[in-house]
């Protein structure tokens, strides 16, 4: 695993995520959100889970980011009005981050380097999905259908 690539990807990911969380303009935040997910997908590639990285790019940048942009465009009229920022959220986030970092650094068994593994091919993922995980796969299909219908019902015009 290449450490220079890791450092660059991690800095870009966290920078884009911070921009997505703090930028005032919604459209810029949505673009930074897509950038942050490109970074997370690159981290997945670095960890050897190429299939999950591709899935992340397809779903998040292809679907969720576009959906967010559509929602921003559909709810555009009050974009300028909310400049509110709750500073106690910053304190809570910093406290959570320092707690997590402290406990991760205290745990000795976590400072291991990556073992050599067999490459995770799409064939292996597909075999696992179609054998041991076939019922969860069906349930996820059902859930996605239900979510699709639910989203349609939610945004349907109401009859008065």
């Amino acid at each position: 695993m290449n450490s220079a690539a890791f450092i660059i990807i991690a800095i870009l990911t966290l920078g884009a995520a911070l921009a997505a969380a703090t930028l005032q303009k919604l459209m810029h935040a949505a673009l930074s959100f897509a950038g942050a997910f490109v970074g997370v997908a690159a981290l997945f590639f670095l960890l050897g889970a190429e299939f999950v990285g591709l899935v992340l790019v397809f779903i998040y940048i292809g679907a969720v980011a576009v959906l967010i942009v559509f929602t921003i465009l559909l709810t555009r009229r009050d974009v300028g009005k909310d400049r509110g920022f709750n500073w106690s959220g910053v304190a809570i986030a910093v406290a959570v981050f320092s707690g997590l970092t402290w406990s991760i650094l205290k745990t000795q068994s976590l400072s291991i380097i990556a073992p050599h593994i067999r490459a995770l091919t799409v064939k292996r993922v597909g075999e696992a999905l179609m054998t041991s995980y076939v019922w969860p796969l069906q349930c996820v299909g059902l859930l996605l259908t239900a979510a699709l219908i639910g989203a349609l019902v939610l945004v349907m015009e109401e009859k008065r």
Binding site: A21, D82, S88, I104
Partner: peptide, 30 residues
Amino acid sequence: TPTLQIFLIVSGALFSIGLLAALSRRHAIF
């Protein structure tokens, strides 16, 4: 080479940034 710790810290930082966005922004999309 990067250890597991470093990945967990990056993931913790990403989680905290998400928590920051969820807790402190007023806009529902954020």
